[in-house]
Computed example of a mutant assay.
Amino acid sequence: MRFLHTADWHIGKKLNGYDLLADQKYILEQILQVAKDKQVDALVIAGDLYDRSVPAVDAVELFNQTIVEMNLNNQLPILAISGNHDSGVRLEAGSPWFAQTKFHLHTRLAQAFVPVEMADVQFYLLPYFEPFEARLYFEEDLKTIKAAMQRVVEEMKKSFDPMKKQVLISHFFVAGSSRTDSEIQIEVGGLDGVPADLLTDFSYVALGHLHNKDALQEKNSQYSGAPLKFSVSEANQQKGVFLVDTETGTREFIPLTPLHELKVITASFQELLDPEYYQQMDREAFLHVVLTDRMIIPNMMNQLRTIYPRILSVERSAGVVEKRKIEKFKKRFNSPQQLIGDFFKEIASAQLTETQEEWIAKGLQAVTNREKSEQTCSQEN
Score class of each variant (00 low, 15 high):
residue 380 E to W: 13
residue 53 S to R: 07
residue 155 E to S: 08
residue 221 S to L: 05
residue 125 L to M: 02
residue 168 L to A: 09
residue 79 L to C: 07
residue 25 K to V: 10
residue 277 Y to N: 02
residue 298 P to L: 06
residue 291 L to Y: 04
residue 189 G to Q: 04
residue 251 R to K: 14
residue 337 Q to T: 10
residue 170 S to Y: 08
residue 377 C to P: 12
residue 270 Q to N: 14
residue 302 N to R: 15
residue 119 A to R: 12
residue 6 T to G: 11
residue 196 A to E: 11
residue 38 K to A: 13
residue 203 S to F: 14
residue 226 A to R: 06
residue 360 I to Q: 09
residue 303 Q to P: 01
residue 78 I to P: 05
residue 91 L to D: 11
residue 66 T to E: 06
residue 294 R to C: 01
residue 298 P to R: 01
residue 178 S to Q: 12
residue 166 Q to I: 02
residue 37 D to V: 08
residue 321 V to W: 00
residue 242 F to E: 11
residue 175 A to H: 10
residue 378 S to W: 15
residue 126 L to K: 02
residue 179 R to E: 08
residue 201 D to V: 09
residue 361 A to K: 08
residue 86 D to E: 11
residue 242 F to Q: 07
residue 169 I to F: 05
residue 304 L to R: 02
residue 348 A to H: 15
residue 108 R to D: 10
residue 275 P to R: 10
residue 362 K to T: 12
residue 317 S to C: 00
residue 299 N to V: 05
residue 334 N to H: 09
residue 189 G to C: 01
residue 231 S to C: 00
residue 160 F to R: 00
residue 109 L to S: 05
residue 159 S to Y: 14
residue 302 N to L: 14
residue 350 A to S: 13
residue 85 H to N: 02
residue 20 L to R: 04
residue 240 G to M: 11
residue 15 L to T: 03
residue 280 Q to N: 14
residue 363 G to Q: 03
residue 286 F to D: 07
residue 67 I to K: 02
residue 118 M to R: 12
residue 328 K to N: 12
residue 107 T to Y: 07
residue 105 L to N: 07
residue 202 F to G: 03
residue 89 V to F: 14
residue 367 V to A: 06
residue 82 S to E: 11
residue 74 N to F: 09
residue 17 G to Q: 02
residue 322 E to Q: 11
residue 266 T to F: 00
residue 17 G to C: 00
residue 112 A to Q: 08
residue 94 G to H: 06
residue 40 V to Q: 09
residue 292 T to D: 01
residue 245 D to Q: 08
residue 261 E to D: 15
residue 179 R to H: 13
residue 202 F to W: 10
residue 267 A to C: 12
residue 38 K to R: 14
residue 135 R to F: 07
residue 54 V to F: 13
residue 228 L to G: 04
residue 92 E to A: 14
residue 303 Q to K: 14
residue 344 F to N: 02
residue 20 L to S: 04
residue 346 E to Q: 13
residue 177 S to D: 00
residue 130 E to S: 10
residue 290 V to C: 01
residue 348 A to D: 15
residue 88 G to Y: 09
residue 251 R to E: 09
residue 9 W to R: 06
residue 362 K to R: 12
residue 178 S to K: 15
residue 159 S to D: 08
residue 51 D to E: 11
residue 191 L to M: 11
residue 134 A to G: 03
residue 349 S to I: 10
residue 194 V to W: 02
residue 118 M to Q: 11
residue 315 E to D: 04
residue 334 N to M: 13
residue 225 G to C: 06
residue 115 P to Q: 02
residue 125 L to I: 00
residue 128 Y to S: 01
residue 222 Q to R: 15
residue 114 V to M: 06
residue 118 M to E: 08
residue 350 A to H: 07
residue 173 F to E: 04
residue 209 H to A: 01
residue 150 Q to E: 12
residue 325 K to C: 05
residue 298 P to F: 08
residue 34 V to R: 03
residue 54 V to Y: 10
residue 130 E to G: 07
residue 26 Y to I: 06
residue 106 H to V: 05
residue 280 Q to R: 13
residue 366 A to I: 04
residue 279 Q to T: 13
residue 292 T to M: 05
residue 203 S to Y: 15
residue 113 F to A: 01
residue 276 E to I: 12
residue 316 R to D: 00
residue 331 K to A: 14
residue 218 E to W: 09
residue 211 H to N: 01
residue 367 V to W: 03
residue 358 E to T: 07
residue 252 E to V: 08
residue 342 D to P: 11
residue 155 E to A: 13
residue 262 L to T: 04
residue 145 I to Q: 11
residue 167 V to I: 11
residue 310 R to D: 00
residue 261 E to Y: 15
